[in-house]
Design a protein around this nucleic acid. Structure first.
Lengths: 395, 395
DNA sequence: CTATTTAATCCATACAGTTTACTAATATGG
DNA sequence: CCATATTAGTAAACTGTATGGATTAAATAG
C-alpha cells in the first residue's frame, strides 16, 4: 500500500518538477501530513530533494520546492547492434550523464562474446556514474531482433545471425549486479518509447514510430505502452504488402514495403551502391552519401525518396485505419531524410485513409536520431524506478 | 485500499467459481482471516454466497464453497441499431436472465425518440430482473457509430443518420437510475469484448474480431482491452485499401475492402439484390438468401465469397503484421458465412504475412452471432462490478 | 506590530490486514 | 473406538499507515 502511494507521490513530483508539499497534497488527494511522510521516505532513498523556497499564492508562508534528485539514482541503457555497442546513463531528471558508443562488428560473433563485451561497457558506465555520485539502479538492453520475453530468448536476430539465444541468463552473468534486475527489449519498441518519454511523442495521444534501419519496423505506442501483440511480433510494418505479387522479400512474401522503402531499396533507386557487410561497418556512411545527393537536388535521389515515401505512406494509411494513432513519427534513417520523404508520405497517407476521421495524423520527424533505442532502454529503468520506488528503499 | 482488495478477492472467486476461503487465501496472498472478512463484505452486498461443503485435500475439515451470487446483482446491456433495439440482463454468473429484441426502423428517427424508446425497453428489463430477485447494477449501451467518449457524443452514425448527438446526457435522462452510472460504447468494440468474455476469445492472447455488417469494422483486443486509438477510431478495417485506385468508396477513398467484402459487394457479386433501406427491415433476410445459394453450391455465390475472402485475407495480413493477434474471429455476417469464406481468407492471409512469425493466427468463426454487441454491453457492466465491488456496498 | 494567509508538522485516532492462538470438522491408524 | 494428524475457518491482540484537527512557521497587508 505504502509502495503504491510512494509511487503516486513520486510520479506527481516527476510530472510537476518543482512542487511544494501542499500542492502535491491537493493533486494526489493525500493529506499534507501523508505527503510529508512519504516524501521523507523518498528523500531517504535519495530519489527526491528539497530545493529553494517558492512563493505559491499571493501571500503566506512560501513552500519548499521538492524536485527529483538528479544526483541519486540513475538508469543504465545498453544497446546491442549490428555494428556497435552503446551505453548511456541517465539520471532521474532525464539528463544524460554518460554516453559511450563502441563500434564493433557483431555480425557472426558468438552471442557470449558480444554480451561479455557489453558487460565490460556496462561496468565502465556504472563506474563513471559512481564517479559522479550516481547509483545505477538498473539496466535495460536493446536488442535488434524478435524476442520471446517470457522465456528470455532472442528468437531471431537476422542481422546478428542469432537464433534462440538465451539473452536473459547471459545478461545476468555478464552485467554487474544492480538493485533492480536487468531487462531487455526489442530495439524498435525501445526507440518508440524513447520518442514517448524524451521526444514529443507524449503530446499526441498514442503514435506510430517508424524506425527505418536495414529493415523497417514500427513501434505502436498507445496509452503510454507499446503494443506488443500476442507473441511480441507487432509492428512489422516493413512486411505489409504494397504491391501484391511484387518483388520477393526476405520474409517469404512478395511486394513488401521493405522492397520499396527499405534502406537498400532507396539506395539502389538513387543509384548508390547497396549496403553490404563490408560497407556497413561505417555507420551513417550510405545515408550520408544519399543526403549529399539530395542536398544537390539529384533527380534520381529525389525520385527514389518520392517512391519510397509513397509506398511508406500507403502502408501507413492501413496502419492509421487500424490503429488510429495521434501522429506518425519518422525515426531511424527516415529522420534525417524526413524533409525529402515527408511530402510523398503525407500525400499517400491522405489518399489511403478514409474521410471518417476528421484529419490525417501529422507526420513528424524524430529528434532523437540514432540514440533512440539506448535512451529508451534507460527510460524503461527510469519508469520502473518511478513506478516502484520501494525497490530502492534502504531495507 | 479495501476497495482494491475486495476486487482482488471477487475476481479470484469469479475465475475459480466454487472456491474455498483457504484456497482463495493461497491464491491472493492474503491471510485466511482477511479473506473471510472481505468475503463477509461481499456477501453482505449480495455478490457472493456460500455453497456446499467441499473436500479439498486428502483429509481435514472440508471447506465451504464460495461462488458468485447469481441472484444478486445483474447487468443490463442495451443496443441501438438500425432496425432494432435490444436489451438483455445477465447475472454475475454470466447467465442470460432476460432478453428482448424489438424491431424498430430507427433510420432518420430523432435521437431523442430512439433513446426514449430504449429507456422504456430498459425499464421493462429492470422490472423483469427485479421480478427474478435481481438488482440491476448498471447499464451500457451499444451504439453503431463513431463515438467521442470523452465528451459523451456520437460523432457520426451514418446508418442512423446521427451527427454530434449528445448520447451521454440523453441516456442519463432516459434510463432508470442505477447504482453504477450508465456508459456507452461502439457496437464493434462491444462485440469484440463479448467474444473475449463469452466466446472463446480469451484462449488466444489478443485477437481481432471482424464484425461484418453493412460496413466492415474490427475490434482489436489486446491484453484484455479494446484498442481504441488516439481518437477512438481504431479498427476501421473496412477502409484498408485492397486495390489502389480501385472503385470509389463511401469514405472518399478508392479500392477499400468494403468494396470487395462488404455485405452489398458480396450480394451483388452473388447476383442478389443489394440491401436497400426497404429490404433491410427484415434482419438476416439478404444473408439468408445468400446462404440458400451457397448450400446449393451456386457457382456465382461461391465465387463471390472466394473473392471477398481473398480481399479480407489480404487486409487481415496487414493487420496481422501490425498487431500480431493470437487469432482472427469472424463475426457479424461473416460468422454464418464462415465455412465458405474461411478458405480464401486463410489462403490470402498465408500469402501476405511474413515468415518471421512461426505461424499464421487461426481464423475462427464467432459463436455469438448477432447478439454479440448486447452481450458485450452487459459484459462491460459485469466487469465493472467485479472490478469495483465497492460501488455496490450498502453505504 | 498585529492580523491574515499559506506551508508544514505534531499527536491522537481509526482503519485494515497480519499474527498467533484457538475451535471445527474430517480422515488415518492403531 | 479413540487418539492423532490434517485442513478450514474464526477470534483477539498487534502493527503499520493514512487521516483529522490542532500547532508552529513564515510571509504579506494594513
Amino acid at each position: 500500500m505504502r509502495e503504491r502511494n510512494l509511487a503516486v507521490v513520486l510520479e506527481q513530483v516527476v510530472h510537476c518538477q518543482p512542487v511544494t508539499r501542499a500542492r502535491l497534497a491537493e493533486q494526489t488527494g493525500f493529506t499534507k501530513t501523508t505527503v510529508s511522510n512519504l516524501l521523507a521516505v523518498l528523500e531517504s532513498a535519495g530519489l527526491v530533494q528539497d530545493g529553494a523556497l517558492v512563493q505559491g499564492g499571493e501571500r503566506g508562508r512560501p513552500g519548499i520546492a521538492v524536485s527529483v534528485n538528479g544526483d541519486g539514482a540513475a538508469a543504465l541503457g545498453l544497446e546491442i547492434n549490428v555494428d556497435y555497442l552503446a551505453a548511456c546513463v541517465l539520471d532521474l531528471g532525464r539528463r544524460t550523464r554518460y554516453h559511450q558508443l563502441v563500434t564493433f562488428d557483431n555480425r557472426g560473433r558468438p552471442p557470449e562474446a558480444v554480451i561479455s563485451s557489453l558487460g565490460r561497457l556496462a561496468a565502465e558506465a556504472v563506474a563513471a556514474a559512481a564517479g559522479q555520485g550516481l547509483l545505477v539502479a538498473g539496466a535495460t538492453v536493446a536488442v535488434p531482433g524478435l524476442l520471446d520475453r517470457e522465456n528470455g530468448l532472442v528468437r531471431r536476430a537476422p542481422n546478428l545471425g542469432w537464433t534462440d539465444v538465451p539473452v536473459s541468463t547471459l545478461l545476468r552473468d555478464a552485467l554487474p549486479d544492480l538493485p533492480i534486475p536487468a531487462t531487455h527489449d526489442n530495439e524498435a519498441n525501445l526507440a518508440a518509447l524513447a520518442e514517448l518519454w524524451f521526444g514529443d511523442g507524449a503530446r499526441h495521444g498514442g503514435f506510430i514510430h517508424v524506425s527505418g534501419e536495414i529493415g523497417i519496423g514500427a513501434g505502436i505506442v498507445m496509452d503510454g505502452q507499446v503494443l506488443r501483440g500476442a507473441h511480441g511480433f507487432a509492428g512489422e510494418l516493413g512486411h505489409l504488402v504494397v504491391e501484391p505479387g511484387g518483388a520477393p522479400c526476405t520474409c517469404g512474401g512478395r511486394g513488401c514495403l521493405e522492397q520499396f522503402a527499405g534502406q537498400d531499396a532507396i539506395l539502389r533507386a538513387a543509384g548508390l551502391p547497396a549496403v553490404t557487410a563490408t560497407t556497413a561497418a561505417k555507420p551513417d556512411g550510405p545515408i550520408r552519401a544519399l543526403l549529399d545527393l539530395l542536398e544537390h537536388s539529384d533527380q534520381r535521389a529525389l525520385a527514389a525518396l518520392d517512391g519510397a515515401g509513397r509506398a511508406l505512406g500507403a502502408t501507413l494509411a492501413s496502419a492509421v485505419n487500424l490503429v488510429d494513432p495521434g501522429a506518425i513519427v519518422l525515426g531511424g534513417i527516415f529522420s534525417p531524410l524526413a524533409s525529402w520523404i515527408r511530402p510523398a508520405v503525407e500525400a499517400a497517407l491522405g489518399e489511403g485513409s478514409g474521410s471518417l476521421r476528421t484529419a490525417v495524423p501529422p507526420v513528424v520527424a524524430s529528434e532523437l536520431a540514432g540514440n533512440a533505442a539506448v535512451l529508451g532502454a534507460a527510460g524503461v529503468v527510469i519508469e520502473r524506478v518511478i513506478g516502484h520506488p520501494a525497490l530502492l528503499l534502504p531495507s
